[in-house]
């Protein structure tokens, strides 16, 4: 039984179709990542799944309950970490957890019993009495994550959980999410960070313009959509080199600014050629998810 099933989901704002017929399925215990550039429709997809906005077409069921009709019952088993922290600034760390637990109809005694574990999980045990504004960005994020766990949910939604955090704070959040996955929690996260997706997700879908472009495990995606080796070539004359020689030595070659990306199965001829060119710097690396992502969604800026 899947925890979340969405079929042929559609949502338009005016003439703009933000979600254009997508299918999703989340199985118990997996960590699923929805990747996409800004404006791809990720947040709208989450809002649809939570029953916070009505779809124009398609069906959703969460824990076998129809959404949005029974979204309230379904949300009782869900935790949500929104893109932007919405902790209550009038309350302390501890009160935020208490008040939020009350929204789930939990008794004060029940919540009291859960708070120490959650504070420990968030690394905020000695900040329990602090007001929200006294916390750093990373602490707020951890508290938001802890708050999402107050009802001991089976399914956790995270909308870009580490956007805007420094590397230390990101790693800590990742560690916590892996901990939750190990406890058997099902996780649905959206992100535009490939390293985040590659590290955390069992299964991914890449979304753009409201459609799912590709899905699979991180390895499957790399294997299916991109040549295994990449050589990045930098320098003023890189473009001329690519047109003249480089392009012929690889299967595919893309140019952005003064960098040329060469994709190939066998890069030896390419590397051999580059050794003769002291004017060009280069970097040879295995292909990764980011290459797949850029190939599928293009290199244009999204604002």
């Amino acid at each position: 039984m899947a925890y979340l099933v969405a079929r042929e989901l559609r949502k338009s704002y005016g003439a703009h179709e933000v979600v254009a017929g997508i299918d999703l399925e989340l199985r118990p215990g997996e960590c699923f990542g929805l990747l996409g550039p800004n404006g791809a429709g990720k947040t709208t997809t989450l809002r649809l799944c939570l029953g916070l906005t009505d779809p124009d077409g398609g069906t959703i069921s969460m824990f076998d309950l129809p959404v949005p009709e029974s979204a309230r019952e379904a949300r009782a088993r869900v935790g949500v970490v929104p893109q932007i922290d919405n902790l209550d600034p009038d309350f302390t760390v501890r009160e935020n957890l208490m008040v939020y637990g009350r929204y789930f109809g939990l008794s004060v005694a029940e919540i009291d019993a859960r708070i120490p574990t959650l504070l420990d999980f968030a690394g905020l045990t000695n900040r329990a009495g602090d007001k929200i504004n006294a916390l750093s960005g990373g602490m707020k994020r951890r508290l938001t994550l802890a708050r999402a766990l107050i009802n001991d949910p089976d399914l956790i939604f995270l909308d870009e959980p580490t956007t805007g955090l420094d590397p230390q704070a990101r790693h800590l959040i990742w560690q916590r999410l892996r901990q939750l996955a190990a406890q058997g929690k099902t996780i649905f996260l959206t992100t535009h960070f490939m390293d985040e997706a590659e590290r955390l997700c069992h299964r991914l879908a890449i979304m753009d313009h409201g459609r799912i472009m590709a899905s699979g495990t991180p390895r499957e995606l790399v294997a299916a959509h991109i040549e295994p080796q990449v050589v990045e070539v930098f320098g003023d004359s890189a473009a001329a080199w690519a047109a003249d020689q480089g392009g012929a030595l690889c299967e595919r070659c893309e140019q952005t600014g003064e960098t040329v990306f060469c994709y190939a199965r066998d890069v030896d001829p390419l590397l051999h050629n580059l050794e003769q060119r002291p004017d060009l710097r280069y970097l040879h690396r295995p292909a990764n998810l980011e290459d797949v992502f850029l190939r599928l969604t293009g290199r244009d800026l999204r604002d």
């Binding site: 309230r72 919405n86 902790l87 929204y103």
Partner: peptide, 8 residues
């Protein structure tokens, strides 16, 4: 928004 993510 936070409250509406709960069963409310």
């Amino acid at each position: 928004e936070a409250i509406m993510n709960a069963p409310i």
